[in-house]
Design a protein around this nucleic acid. Structure first.
Length: 430
RNA sequence: GCAGAGAUGGCGGAGUGGUCGAACGCGCACGACUCGAAAUCGUGUUACGGGCAACUGUACGGGGGUUCGAAUCCCUCUCUCUGCGCCA
């Protein structure tokens, strides 16, 4: 949600931003908001006056009662009652106007960074920097599922029986590798000065509706039957929810946190769960990083965050590139976003393994996350950012394809060996 | 899970139907005193919204209700504490 003052003061800039995102159908909302906002303020003035009257009358009644002037008091009561009817009328009109206003405000996209490339859809995303040389293998790289099966590292048949499509058993060295990657990533972020955090894996509906739209919720979130609880789709949900409705002192910023959690997603809609293997699944695990900082520092942190992910992948000897999200592909809450994509020697192209976003104050405004500005003494909204550190098992696809050898064994880069009992490779099971 | 107690400003803590946005204390800010500091004294100090301003509205865990009027009474949810029970 953007600042309504921006719409009041500079509606043209807001419209320009909407055009940049190719959401022209939302253009009329801006004028609608201006008129709803005006209406709201008129109603507010009126209702404030009437309430002031109510307060005065109530005091008068109290005074009369004390003096024992019962009859006079009754007269004023009747007057006050009539006044209150009018208050109720305007209040209900006002709550309607407020609801409409809020709905419109939620549809207005966040102002995007000047650095965001302009484009209609993900097809127009722009390649940024590239790290390590993306090389083709001198042999055919099999589909990741086949690699996993050769290494005796996966059992999808049983998972389908116990849980259905979109679930998996990882076994043996592959399961260990999965944990090793997460542990290594956790320590990597701790070394960068981030605070490690294990959050709740279930959250209440008010937190859910705070962190996402109804459509997203419907398409992603699993609900616990008979409870007001949902399984988180990412630890960002509970990590950001942690700060809902709080004001923190300026010296508590920046908050630099890295969290681990399993993630549960229905994956309803566009791509679905049909794809074979472990690319898109209902359950995965993720090491995440989130930052809450002062407004003037969020650009700095954005650059830092995505570079951490790159550094992590490079240390595991996996070629990656940065892909700049274009204006049309950017979610409404985001100011700027990029994906980190890993090289797939099989497909001979890059695919997404993480995503880094700066939401500026849009998320914080929606959730009421503020800090006390030490200079001005005012409470102001923080900026929030989030980024994937690493999310296996999807990340394992990149790992296996890049480190596969012709004989079917998989090479383990040195940084992971301490987490793998010193092993330097995973061998094919005879 | 059962029973009892409770949730008030940055913190502690009064307040049980009207003059309460809230006593008192702590903390914090500013000023006085001092060479400087401590101590002491004085002043100020909730948030959000409307208004050029004067001023004004709302909020005492969340939601709903009673009343002319609710921090205060009723319902409900959440959370905390104490005791019992159960359990990794």
């Amino acid at each position: 949600m953007i600042d309504i003052n921006l719409i009041r003061e500079n509606p043209e800039a807001v419209k320009e931003n909407i055009k940049k995102k190719f959401q022209d159908s939302k253009l009329p909302l801006v004028d609608e908001i201006i008129s709803l906002d005006k209406k709201k303020r008129e109603l507010q003035t009126e209702v404030d006056g009437l309430r002031a009257q109510r307060n005065t009358l109530a005091k008068k009644i109290g005074a009369l009662m004390k003096e024992g002037k019962r009859e006079e008091a009754e007269e004023v009561k009747a007057l006050s009652k009539r006044n209150n009817d009018r208050v109720a009328e305007i209040e209900s009109e006002m709550s309607q106007v407020e609801a409409d206003l809020k709905k419109d405000m939620l549809s207005i996209p966040n102002i995007i960074s000047k650095d965001v490339p302009i484009g209609r859809s993900d097809a127009e995303n722009v390649q940024g920097k590239v790290f390590l040389k993306a090389e083709e293998k001198p042999f055919d790289v099999p589909y990741h599922l086949d690699i996993l099966e050769k290494l005796d590292g996966i059992d999808l048949d049983s998972a389908r029986r116990t849980s259905g499509n979109g679930f998996y058993y990882l076994t043996g060295d592959i399961a260990r590798l999965h944990s090793a990657v997460l542990s290594y990533a956790r320590d990597f972020m701790i070394d960068k000065g981030f605070t490690y955090c294990i959050p709740p894996y279930m959250i209440r509906s008010d937190v859910v509706s705070g962190v996402m739209s109804f459509e997203e919720m419907d398409g992603m979130m699993y609900k616990i039957e008979g409870e007001d609880l949902y399984l988180i789709g990412t630890s960002e949900h509970s990590m950001i929810g942690r700060f809902m409705g709080t004001v923190m002192p300026e010296d508590k910023l920046p908050q630099t946190l890295t969290s681990y959690s399993p993630c549960f997603r229905k994956e309803k809609g566009a791509h679905g769960i049909e794809e074979r293997g472990i690319y898109r699944i209902h359950q995965f695990e993720k090491q995440e990083m989130i930052v809450l900082c002062k407004p003037e520092e969020s650009d700095f942190w954005y650059e830092k965050l995505w570079n951490y992910t790159v550094e992590l992948f490079v240390s595991m000897e996996i070629p990656v590139r940065q892909l700049l999200c274009c204006s049309g592909d950017l979610a409404d809450l985001k100011y700027q976003s990029c994906d980190i994509e890993a090289w797939s020697p099989r497909q001979k192209k890059y695919f997404e393994v993480g995503s880094c976003s700066n939401l500026t104050d849009a998320q914080a405004r929606r959730l009421g996350i503020r800090y006390k500005n030490a200079k001005t003494g005012k409470n102001e909204f923080v900026h929030t950012l989030n980024n994937t550190v690493v999310a296996p098992p999807r990340m394992l696809i990149a790992f296996l394809e890049n480190h596969l050898r012709e004989d079917g064994s998989v090479y383990i880069p040195s940084v992971l060996r301490p987490y793998m009992g010193g092993k330097s490779e995973i061998q094919v099971k005879k």
